[in-house]
Structures are given as C-alpha cells and as structure tokens.
Nucleic acid binder design. Structure first.
Length: 254
DNA sequence: ATGGCCTGCAACGCAGGA
C-alpha cells in the first residue's frame, strides 16, 4: 500500500497539479493539508473520476485537511473531540486495517507569540488524543505537515535556524513527546544520513538554492515500520510551474 | 532568513503561511 502526504497550499489552485500527480504516482491513499476550502467546495467528483473516495474537513481560506483513498475508509474522525477546535487540522480513517491520521500542525508564526503557544498546546492535544484513541502496538500512521524540523540534518543551515520558528527547542520537544507515544520517523529510519527537505520557501530563491527544511513526516508505530518498504520525497513537483511550497512524501508498506 | 513569494478575501492592501 502506498500512502502519500502533501500540503497542497490551496486545493483550488493546485487541483490539476494534484490530479496529474495522482495519475502518475497512483498512491492508494493521499492525505492533503491546507486545502483552504469549505466542504461544499471540495472537488469530490474529480477524485471520484480517478476512483478515489474522499473525506474532508475544511474551512474558508485557512487550514483544511482531507484524505482520499481507493480502499474503503472506516471510522472517520474529523478534528479533536469537544468544542474549541475551530481550526481544521486533523482527519483520520482506518484503511486496510491501518489507522491513518492526516495532520496540519499550526505554523506558530514566531517564537514567543500567542500562535507559538497555541502550536505547542496543539501538539499536547495530539498526544492526548492518540493516548485516548490508539495503541502503539497497533498499525498507526500519523502523517502530514508538522511544521517542525526534528534535527540539524533536516535544516539547510541549522546554525542560522537555531532557535527560530520551525526549529526551536520547545517545538522539537513537542514533536518528541508525540513520538514518545511509540512512533518512529519513517523517513529517517530508512534514510539515516539523507539530507532531504520537504518544504522550500517561495521567497529568496530558496528552491533554486536548495534552502529547505524537512517538516512533513510519517510517524509510524512498530507494526507499520516493520512493513515499510520505502519512504520517498518527490522533489520533481517543486520544480514545475506554480508548485506548492511543499512536496509529496510517500510511504510504501507491504 | 536581512528579504525576496503565494493564496484568499474582499478589496484595490492585508493576514497568514513557514
């Protein structure tokens, strides 16, 4: 089974790009982030034409997550339970016996800001939700845009980035506490020394100069890790016309 | 990363992203 994650940065703008990528890469599942559209606007039929079912959890202009899948999806969950979860950042479904959770972690804006505090809180909430709804002995995949680069090797210039948003110690600790549920970083496990990025800023010619960060991840429990065949980053899409600033990451399991 | 751009919304600049 091939599971992909991609922050598409507006599905409205990126729809043709995504459909083209699906036709060429044929994942069984794609988790999308930053769809930036309401559920009424979601182009369910376009994915249906490629034999994908869709579940989606959107809002106008900001955030928005979705899962499209060829195998049937069960036990769909949208957002954390209870009130106060206004931002659409989490969607989950069980597919072929694997619990798949697509997440779009808050960006955090700048270290010390109100949004930054909210980001750290969101990671706590994710961990608590996992504790309440899943078990590390089960096959669980949490994938998406975590907006955190875990280690120096995941940052083009770790010295320049030290302490700044996406790479500050509290953010890394927040991601670590989610990992401590019982996850491995699937990409890093398969490619221990690889310097690969999943996001490049639109500004400053970052892509052309390869000034990127690895902030899109597959966190997998041991039963999934043992079945993992490959984890790949598709940089080819970043070089095309009107790309998302993020690229797809693909996990293949037996 | 000094900053540079892209997207959505409702304007004709701003918020937000990362």
């Amino acid at each position: 089974m091939k599971i992909a994650t991609w922050n598409v940065n507006s599905l409205r703008i990126r729809q043709d790009t995504v459909l083209d990528w699906l036709e060429h890469n044929k994942p069984d599942v794609l988790c999308m982030q930053e769809t930036k559209m309401t559920d009424q606007e979601f182009p369910e039929d376009a994915f249906g034409d490629l034999s994908y079912d869709a579940v989606y959890f959107g809002q106008p202009a900001y955030n928005g997550v979705a899962i499209i899948s060829r195998p049937e999806m069960f036990e769909v969950v949208k957002g954390f339970p209870g009130a106060g979860d206004q931002e659409k950042r989490l969607i989950a479904a069980t597919i072929d016996g694997v619990r798949i959770v697509g997440v779009y972690a808050p960006n955090g804006q700048s270290v010390g800001s109100e949004k930054y505090a909210g980001k750290l809180e969101w990671f706590k909430r994710l961990r608590a939700w996992l504790d309440a709804t899943a078990k590390p002995e089960q096959p669980v995949v949490v994938c998406g845009d975590f907006n955190v680069a875990p280690e120096d090797i995941d940052v083009h210039d770790p010295i320049a980035w030290r302490g700044s948003i996406l790479f500050s110690e509290p953010e890394k600790a927040a991601l670590s506490s989610v990992m401590d549920f019982g996850f491995s970083d699937a990409f890093r496990h398969i490619h221990p020394g690889a310097r690969k990025f999943s996001w490049w800023d639109y500004r400053a010619g970052s892509w052309e100069r390869n000034l990127g960060l690895r902030i899109d991840h597959f966190l997998v429990t041991r039963p999934v890790l043992e079945r993992t065949v490959s984890v790949t980053m598709d940089e080819t899409v970043r070089a095309k016309t009107a790309p998302s600033d993020h690229i797809p990451v693909v996990l293949e399991i037996r």
